[in-house]
Amino acid sequence: MCALCGVLGGAEHWADAHPRPGAFTRNTSPLERRRERARRVAEANRILALFGLKLSDWQGTAFRLATRTGKVELVGDLGHLWAAAERLLGRPLDPLDPVLLARLGPEA
């Protein structure tokens, strides 16, 4: 997405489901948008668990990322997830690392 579309698009992250008229989305009702958000959290947790991290929804407005030792960071949207994970762990992470993808299995 270009920067201008991001600015004109509103407060939501461009990848989040939203109810704006004219926007292409299959998640038109609030319940469908919450389900989609829960699916994204579950999928992110498949990867984050390999690093000892857990993501949870925080009131439908942000995400809570936590380590096993109790460090927590609030993340505004999934676009900022990996940077937050790197800060919490103190090392770089690559969610597309071939070794990591092999550990996730063929459905990754």
Rank of each mutant, 00 (worst) to 15 (best):
H13W: 12
R91T: 11
G6V: 03
R46V: 09
A62P: 06
F51Y: 14
D94K: 11
L8M: 13
R46F: 04
P92D: 01
A108Y: 05
L81R: 03
R46H: 12
L8Y: 09
T67D: 03
H18I: 00
L100F: 11
G90M: 11
D94V: 07
R64G: 08
G6T: 01
A38D: 14
D94S: 12
G52D: 04
R46G: 03
G79F: 02
T67Y: 03
R33D: 02
R39W: 07
E86Q: 14
G76D: 09
A15E: 06
H13E: 12
W82M: 13
R46K: 14
L50H: 15
L101W: 06
L48K: 00
W82S: 05
E36M: 08
L74S: 12
R26F: 10
E32I: 00
A23S: 06
R91P: 04
A44S: 15
D77E: 12
E73G: 02
E32M: 13
T25C: 11
A102W: 09
K71T: 05
V99E: 15
R40D: 07
R33V: 00
L74F: 15
R33A: 01
T61H: 11
W14E: 02
A17C: 09
L88P: 08
N45E: 10
A38S: 15
D16Q: 08
P19K: 10
P21S: 12
